[in-house]
């Protein structure tokens, strides 16, 4: 324990004695992690938006003749009992006419003299998130036609397929670009730390010459690397939050056409902690690789 405290204090003293090198390492880690944070912000918000849009995936079953109230209740219960179904709504002929008029707006006069009987009543069926894929929707629709005798069942097949392709592209693109950015950050940060330690190779040599063991030389530098990564991670989260709060929030809202800017969110706490841990990891392992080459007794 005493030894650990000594190494920790030594690491802090090293950082204080070489502020420029320390600053370069912390700054590089902070910039690299901030870029990842920005990217994650965009991906998370686009995914959030996609999930929001996904909620609109809906099946509409038109009823040629409206069953009696008990029959309608039973039909709704049977549909709601399906494992894929989240909610079943009913729109009567009158409600449909009101909606239609609302949609026509100033041209609602066109419907003057026309009764609600021209429009069919309908059941709007929304599915649980896991079943909002084209294949699943198709399966549910077939079931409704076959088992419940609903003939006129519609859903936006083409739109749903495009939306599905977009979400898949988003997931793959996010993973590829995110992975690339993470790799680039690892490369840049570990090399910067390697360079800062290379600049102190004389110090490492002298320590070895006066009898320091490999562990005694490396431990403070490893702690220093981890602390630099930790600082870099904290700065990155802070910087990302500041930029998000003052600039990115509005920019993302307009870019993603999110009607309510409240639907644009900052990185979740788990991701923020992950980013800080990534900083510690980058600093620690960047130090290990360089020390392995520089400390030879």
């Amino acid at each position: 324990m005493e030894c650990l405290i000594y190494f920790f204090l030594r690491a802090l003293r090293n950082m204080r004695q070489c502020p420029l090198l320390c600053g370069v390492a912390v700054g590089t880690a902070a910039v690299a992690l901030t870029i990842i944070a920005f990217f994650a912000l965009v991906v998370i918000n686009v995914q959030q938006l996609a999930a929001h849009i996904g909620e609109r995936v809906e099946i509409v079953a038109y009823l040629d003749s409206v069953p009696a109230s008990d029959g309608l209740k039973l039909l709704r219960q049977r549909i709601a009992a399906l494992p894929e179904v989240a909610e079943v709504g009913y729109t009567s002929r009158e409600e449909a006419m009101t909606l239609f008029k609302k949609r026509l707006g100033r041209d609602a006069d066109l419907l003057e003299g026309v009764g609600p009987e021209i429009l069919p009543a309908s059941l709007s069926i929304s599915l649980k998130p896991d079943f909002r894929t084209p294949a699943e929707v198709e399966r549910v629709v077939s079931g409704l036609r076959r088992d419940l005798g609903l003939d006129d069942v519609r859903f936006g097949r083409e739109w749903l397929e495009k939306f599905e392709a977009f979400v898949t592209l988003l997931k793959i693109g996010g993973a590829v670009i995110g992975g690339f950015l993470l790799f680039a950050a690892l490369f840049i940060v570990s090399n910067t730390i390697r360079l800062t330690q290379y600049a102190r190779r004389d110090e490492l040599e002298v320590m070895g010459l006066v009898g320091a063991t490999s562990m005694f030389i490396k431990a403070p530098f490893l702690i220093e690397g981890a602390l630099q990564g930790l600082l870099g991670g904290l700065i990155a989260v802070g910087l990302a939050f500041a930029v998000f709060h003052y600039f990115l929030h509005e920019a993302l809202a307009s870019l993603l056409l999110a009607s309510a800017s409240g639907s644009i969110v900052f990185l979740p706490l788990g991701f923020q902690l992950l980013l800080i841990c990534a900083g510690v990891f980058l600093g620690f392992f960047g130090s290990i690789t360089s020390l392995r080459k520089l400390v030879r007794i």
């Binding site: 040599e205 002298v206 070895g208 063991t213």
Partner: peptide, 24 residues
Amino acid sequence: SRQIPFLRRRLGIVFQDFKLLNTR
């Protein structure tokens, strides 16, 4: 390599270029 540091702890070494830790 594990024993070498313990040998060096019994030796005093002085170099032409001093080899001091300049940040300390």
